[in-house]
């Protein structure tokens, strides 16, 4: 009986009783949701453009953040460091294409996926070697992002909006809109979608596979950098950020592997859903349920709507 009230009554009573807390949770969930959506977008870009399920995306986030901090610590001005990281990512994209992807054209999706897992091992080893394994703090202040917070009185209490969170949300939304336009409106975008459908067919109509892959991996790197900056500012920069990166996977399940709006909506659902669950239902189970709840939301979706929110129903043929 206690359990039932704990599940069905108390949380909702708390939501109504303390609306300011509720809105605070909603906002926090929203911000992490946009960032999840952003990481998921990195996955979607590469999946759409090359059919590769890129498991290295989370580690790219870590790499971006670590590299940025290291450049800054070497005395490079903050914004120049950003440019250096971008150059580094372009070089990395070129190398990945040259050394790995080019050799795996037309192979099975599973093999491509495994190669990105291997790639993430290479990056982990290299990043730890070069940048060291100790957590460090992000340089968002030096990059000119505002710090501090504004309080907005509401329902007799107040909701805190971290200025950094607001800028994260704004930048994320801007980036998402730009990428959406890039994909749907430009020639490169069309080429990307052609490559995703069929490597050989795309080659036969004169699309340069190699160039497309370099671009896509570079764009994924840019997305990783943005995510790295904001997640890094919210917590420390360390290899634990990788685990946050994996949260993008349930987002993909909800939104579908190829849908840009799906990544956003899925990200928000996961971000808000897990925050609510942690705050209102978490105490029943002991804290830390944020670690797995996202995956259970995704599981629920898989069982009832396996094609995701924005996917088409596939009729199996014999």
């Amino acid at each position: 009986m206690d359990l039932l009230t704990g599940i069905f009554i108390t949380p909702f009573a708390e939501m109504i009783g303390l609306p300011d807390l509720f809105f605070q949770a909603l906002w926090d969930g929203f911000v992490s949701g946009t960032l999840y959506g952003l990481i998921a977008l990195g996955f979607v870009l590469i999946f759409k453009a090359s059919g590769v399920f890129n498991f290295a995306q989370p580690i790219l986030v870590v790499l971006a953040a670590l590299a940025l901090i290291s450049f800054y610590k070497m005395g490079v001005p903050a914004w120049i460091s950003v440019v250096l990281v971008l150059i580094m990512f372009y070089a990395l994209a070129w190398l990945i294409e040259r050394l790995i992807l080019r050799k795996l054209v037309n192979t099975d999706g599973n093999i491509l996926f495994m190669s990105t897992v291997a790639l993430s091992f290479i990056i982990i080893g290299a990043a730890q070697w070069i940048f060291g394994g100790r957590p460090s703090s992000m340089i968002h202040k030096e990059l000119g992002f505002p710090v501090g917070s504004v309080e907005w009185p509401m329902f007799g209490g107040g909701v805190y909006f971290e200025l950094l969170d607001i800028s994260a949300a704004v930048v994320a939304v801007l980036l998402i809109v730009c990428l959406g336009l890039f994909f749907s409106r430009t020639k490169i975008g069309r080429g990307l979608r052609a490559v995703a459908d069929d490597h050989q067919a795309a080659l036969s109509v004169g699309i340069s596979l190699n160039q497309i892959w370099v671009i896509v991996w570079f764009v994924a790197g840019v997305v990783a950098l943005v995510t790295g900056i904001f997640w890094g500012a919210r917590s420390d920069v360390s290899f634990a950020l990788q685990i946050i990166g994996f949260k993008a996977l349930p987002v993909l399940i909800i939104g579908g592997f190829t849908s840009v709006p799906g990544a956003i909506v899925g990200g928000l659902m996961i971000g808000i859903g897990e925050k609510m669950f942690e705050i209102y239902w978490g105490p029943l189970l002991g804290s830390g349920v944020e670690g797995w709840f996202a995956y259970f939301i995704a599981l629920g979706f898989l069982l009832f709507k396996p094609q995701g929110l924005f996917g088409d129903k596939i009729i199996e043929r014999v």
Partner: peptide
């Protein structure tokens, strides 16, 4: 059990649910 409805990458995410849930259980129980 989810493998009955889903396959491939989707199933992989389902097994990640197992991984993270069990890790949590090993600490919290």
């Amino acid at each position: 059990l989810p493998s009955l409805r889903i396959k491939g990458f989707y199933l992989m995410v389902a097994t990640l649910a197992a991984q993270f849930f069990l890790e949590w259980a090993f600490i919290r129980i």
